[in-house]
Design a protein around this nucleic acid. Structure first.
Lengths: 191, 191
DNA sequence: GTGGTTGTTGCACGAGCGTATAACAACGTG
DNA sequence: CACGTTGTTATACGCTCGTGCAACAACCAC
């Protein structure tokens, strides 16, 4: 039995446990009992704090997406002031820890899989991707890309980075992170 | 009750039913009972013909992947003899029916999700993607791309097409199929 | 200290899951 | 027509699932 905890702290623990379970056991392991066991807590707590598994998974998605966004921003901040370097850092961050992580991909695939029937999850996804593209368009603008070309460039770069990230995590032997960076750099040179 | 059928015909019906179920209900709906009901057949038949749900899903993956490959080859064959046109047709086919289909994406995500714990599924995935890239390298060679640049070009194009296809199916409002083709054409021009 | 609020547990319930098994039915062969 | 083969069904078993509910326990207000 677990000691009594503040609601927010317990919620955070359950969200962390859900992320761990999704990463290790996939969408199939996202059951109340398994998540509660991973958090060292009784199954009833999930219903008590979130009102159902679905809501807990949504909260976990938002949390993981926020962490990814923070990692991207940290990379940009560490890149200095050159607009070109900041743009490159934003893109290359997807091929290094903590983003280029098979466990994160597993979590993401589980989200996609669970989003099939949930309108709330689909909305979260749309928001997250729109945010990524908007940030990218901003960095492209700072780097001197013409306004009327930014949108399509952001679409292409997002797709390229996503596809590379996916394959890099899914079958790490096909190509290296350095090659992924080179591919993105070449695309960037054409823009 | 269903009439007696030849084993191969019944297997094909079950595979079709599985694909339909994965497309409409996601990985969560891939249960013996639901699939059997979709095929108008008793649940026991899945065990009888495939020895378990896992094996049936693997067979469905191979079948769907083969159909995708056929669609790509058909597009290449319809493009005439110009190597450039054949290459473009191979890439653009991902943004038109029957490949740019949310139902197919749903099926694919279900496969990824179910591949989490199955070595056989992961092997099938690796084989499928290696085949896609190999075919692409061949078309790049015919179009006159230098041998030492083909591999990385194929990696980038595969990732770009995959990312665009994913977002096109996942949130169709973000950009159009024509824009996806334009992005690919621009990347191709740089190679 | 006493009482009320609330985080936490354990259990029960109905439902769906995969699979094994025995009975049934259709077909080919003699 | 009889018979063996085999596709097909129906049922049963043990399991996990999500959730509702009553009881317990920790903390806060007074």
């Amino acid at each position: 039995m677990s000691k009594r905890a503040a609601p927010e702290a317990r919620r955070a623990e359950l969200i962390d446990a859900t992320a761990r379970v999704l990463a290790t056991r996939g969408a199939a392991g996202a059951s109340v009992r398994i998540i509660a066991a991973a958090a060292g807590v009784s199954p009833g707590l999930v219903t008590h704090h979130f009102g159902g598994v679905e809501r807990l998974v949504e909260a976990t998605y938002d949390h993981v997406a926020a962490r990814v966004g923070e990692a991207l921003e940290a990379a940009v901040a560490a890149a200095g002031e050159s607009p070109r370097a900041r743009l490159a850092a934003y893109l290359d961050a997807s091929f290094a820890a903590p983003i280029a992580d098979p466990a994160l991909l597993a979590t993401w695939i589980a989200f996609w899989s669970l989003a099939q029937g949930g309108a709330a999850m689909q909305a979260s996804h749309a928001r997250h991707y729109a945010g990524y593209r908007a940030r990218l368009e901003g960095l492209l603008g700072e780097a001197g890309v013409a306004a009327d070309r930014r949108r399509l460039a952001a679409v292409g770069l997002t797709a390229l980075v996503d596809g590379l990230w996916l394959e890099l995590c899914l079958s790490p032997g096909a190509f290296s992170a350095a090659e992924a960076r080179a591919v993105v750099a070449e695309y960037l040179a054409g823009v």
